[in-house]
Design a protein around this nucleic acid. Structure first.
Length: 585
RNA sequence: CGGGGUGUAGCUUAGCCUGGUAGAGCGCCUGGUUUGGGACCAGGAGGUCGUUGGUUCGAAUCCAAUCGCCCCGACCA
């Protein structure tokens, strides 16, 4: 039982100017955190209590899934990172951890870095310590601080430079085992988010820089999220924007029969889809072929989409290139024969087809059948172009960005879209890391194999803010019971009144006995201030002990977020509270 | 890193355009009156106006540079 007057809960009436979104404002106004610098926050007592509860529940769920806790250093010798394929993209966000005078001695490369993640540390450890199939599978996890010098820290704890994360790494003997580990982790995540009272949904996700074979993101739906998720509750399909597919081209779709041969027509100055849609041409965007040129590992390749579709760059990852970028006009012209805006892939029109590593077409262009595309001659287009007869295509694939309302790939029901905050991510990595440092084991026939790995993360501090974003009203936070900094707030309206103080103490003690964390507001403040603060910090159960109720012989019970106030006779209050708390726990 | 903002007391801010003693609300301190949804009265403390340089008799105000912070984009737990 804590007493507000002796504790530290600095609440604010007004939001600081640098907070933009509701959860960020509430984090600060409710006295959970204070900013030290961009993306750097001190956890005040209330915020720390929430973090500790999240951590504890996370640990319980991880252990229940069979994972084993350990703790790795935050400071890593730089050579652990220097060799790997991730050094390039990842070093941009790494903090160097040399002594302050290191610039003079070693101006170029850092000696130490602060760990942004721990694959590079755990894999060598497991390589050194585990060499037999008898010791597999193993899954290790830790909960601690991660350091990433984010290009743009934002929205408080949502994207911070220093944040708390649970990260786990699984090592299996084979692919089937790795899938079992992956699924065990997925269900541990689901239990975790359910227990903390967060509505999080898992969506299929792209594997991104991490590499690996497949992955799921756990998203908390919220308007301020920076990811779109496409889903249909009935079919159960859910994927993020990068990964989402749709059944736009029906099974057994018959492409329109080719018509007249392609005809070239002049289109001076027309270099956009929109310009070709406009008079005098009047070609709808969904009847145009859009041709984009990218450079993959140094070689150009082309992607063909419908004019009305957008390329989803992440889907180009399926082509297997490690370095990808759009080609410049200077690179495009010698290969295609024209500048962007007049490109096409009609057979015979590409100036130097041998230079192209491939021509990849999105399935959806088959819906066009016969359409219009660039002639690879500046200022000219071709009409009556048949996909099957005229276009040069290496292979079809899924490259377009899905739109809400399109049929979902499982059931054909319309896809819905929502914004979401990514709070967790699980990856099946395969042998990417183990291969690099030759980390493996010997099986029962003395044969050597590589570990099949998985890696997993939950942004604990981000989750705290995501819950606030998901659970608040105009008065303040509405904490779920399991992670509320305190579960019961006894509002002692007049701490000078000895009788009331005794009653408040007894009720508080009863709640504590039943297992609740209890805060007593014993401050010498007016009732209005106490009620406002109570709503702001969002304690689930508020018990008001005040003169008005005592006169009637009652105390008042109010659940945060529920409008009604329950009047309970003072003599029954202790039993009522104990029962209420036990029911919640 | 590109684009756009912004920096005045612990917090929210006015003043800047048009240069001339830095103002308010909240919070804080003292005294009093109040006491069930952010009370009232009286008094008080608290600001080298982000920093550096320039223009000027004179700069919070105009100019330049620099730093911090916020927002949009690419990226992530």
């Amino acid at each position: 039982m804590k007493f507000w007057s002796r504790y530290f809960i600095p609440t604010l009436k007004e939001s600081p100017a640098d907070a933009e979104i509701a959860s960020h404002k509430l984090l600060i106004r409710a006295g959970l955190v204070r900013k030290l610098g961009g993306g750097l926050y001190t956890y005040l007592p209330l915020g720390l209590r929430v973090m500790q509860k999240l951590t504890r529940i996370c640990r319980e769920e991880m252990e229940r899934s069979g994972a084993i806790e350990l703790s790795m250093p935050h400071i890593h010798p730089a050579e652990f990172w220097a060799e790997g394929p991730r050094w390039g993209p990842v070093r941009e966000i790494m903090f160097r951890a040399d002594s302050a005078g290191a610039e003079k001695r070693a101006p170029k490369e850092p000696e130490f870095v602060l760990g942004p993640t721990h694959e590079e540390v755990i894999t060598p450890l497991v390589k050194a310590e585990i060499s037999s199939y008898r010791d597999l599978p193993k899954c290790f996890f830790q909960i601690g601080t991660k350091f990433r010098n984010e290009i743009r820290p934002r929205f408080g704890l949502m994207r911070a430079r220093e944040f708390v994360m649970m990260d786990a790494y699984s090592f299996d003997a084979d692919d089937e085992g790795a899938i079992r580990s992956y699924l065990a982790m997925k269900s541990a995540y689901e239990s975790f988010f359910r227990r903390i009272g967060a509505q999080a949904i898992s969506v299929e996700a792209d594997t991104g820089v991490m590499g690996g074979s497949y992955s799921h993101e756990f998203m908390v739906p919220a308007e301020v999220g920076d990811n779109d998720l496409f889903y249909n509750e009935e079919s159960g399909y859910a994927a993020n924007r990068e990964k989402a597919r749709s059944a736009l081209v029906p099974e057994g779709f018959a492409e329109a029969a080719p018509g007249a041969p392609p005809q070239e027509f002049p289109t001076p100055g027309v270099v956009t889809i929109a310009a070709l849609e406009a008079p005098p041409y009047g070609v709808p965007a969904n009847a145009q072929f859009k041709t984009l040129v990218y450079i993959g590992d140094g070689r150009p390749f082309a992607v063909v989409l419908r004019g009305c579709d957008e390329l989803e760059e992440a889907k180009l990852g399926a082509l297997g290139y490690t370095l990808l970028r759009p080609a410049t006009p200077e690179e495009i012209e010698p290969v295609m024969g024209a500048k962007p805006g007049s490109l096409g892939t009609v057979k015979g029109t590409i100036r130097n087809p041998g230079a192209l590593a491939g021509i990849y077409a999105d399935h959806a262009i088959r819906l066009i059948g016969n359409g219009t595309t660039g002639a690879n001659r500046d200022g000219f287009h071709l009409r009556s172009v048949s996909v099957s007869r005229d276009l040069e295509i290496t292979r079809f694939g899924d490259f377009r960005r899905v739109q809400a309302g399109e049929p979902d790939p499982l059931s054909g029901r319309p896809l819905k879209v929502r914004r979401g905050i990514e709070v967790g991510h699980i990856f099946k990595l395969g042998t990417k890391y183990s291969e690099r440092i030759d980390a493996g084991y010997t099986d029962d026939r003395k044969e050597k194999h590589l570990f099949v790995m998985g890696c997993y993360g939950i942004g604990i501090s981000r989750t705290m803010q995501a819950v606030i974003e998901q659970s608040h009203d105009s008065d303040g936070i509405i904490w779920p019971w399991a992670i509320a900094p305190f579960q019961v707030l006894v509002c002692l309206l007049d701490p000078q009144d000895t009788a009331a103080t005794v009653i408040a103490g007894r009720i508080g003690a009863a709640a504590a006995r039943a297992g609740a964390d209890v805060l007593v507001d014993d401050r010498a403040e007016r009732p209005g201030v106490k009620f406002k603060d109570a709503d702001l910090i969002g304690i689930p159960l508020r018990i008001t002990v005040g003169g008005r109720g005592i006169k009637e012989g009652v105390v008042e019970m109010k659940w945060r977020g529920a409008p009604e106030v329950l009047k309970i006779p003072i003599d029954d209050a202790e039993a009522w509270v104990e029962a209420a708390v036990r029911k919640k726990a």
